[in-house]
Amino acid sequence: MAAGPYNYSYIFKYIIIGDMGVGKSCLLHQFTEKKFMADCPHTIGVEFGTRIIEVSGQKIKLQIWDTAGQERFRAVTRSYYRGAAGALMVYDITRRSTYNHLSSWLTDARNLTNPNTVIFLIGNKSDLEAQRDVTYEEAKQFADENGLMFLECSAKTGDNVEDAFLDTAKKIYQNIQDGSLDLNAAESGVQHKPATPRTTLNTDQQPSDKGCAC
């Protein structure tokens, strides 16, 4: 009875970015509630959702910050990149313009997050095959060129949504596993705690948990 869903070892902070109307909030809703939100209102500033997942037997809590795509919120949403371990960059496969803006989003993501942040490219609305405006191959090539992970998803049908969030988490986890070495080597002399940003570490420091004699 004790364990419950709250016992997680890590918290990963995600940020979802992309143009207005590409379905960022719907993706989040589909991921956290497993439901499609048909009349999703425009996001005001930022909103956030959480869900606990399991990666390699570790419970991980995802804290996902969903940003507004509207230009007028750009200044506000930029402040939320800070400390994100994963960035989901979303475009709409039926609207070429949203794809064309990716490079500007990517620039933001690269500039405002840390080098270890995992950036995942998501082509949303894959259920609307008939209206497709951006081919899979083209986006895949863009992702490869920029070292991004990539999937086409549908927030409506839920297709691949789970995978996008989970794959990102797996990658981050993997970075933690082998990344600590990496970081120490790369920036010698700088002392810092965990490998990844605020994907903080609760696990290892538990033994004292029951040990406070006083």
């Binding site: 402040s79 939320y80 800070r82 840390n114 490998a195 940003p197 605020r198």
Partner: peptide, 29 residues
Amino acid sequence: GPGGTPRPIELHSHDPLRYVGDMLAWLHQ
């Protein structure tokens, strides 16, 4: 952040909007 990325918020103190915005976003989170 660890290793200095993301950079300290105070580095942007010359840009009032970004400086205050970052602090507020941090507080919100």
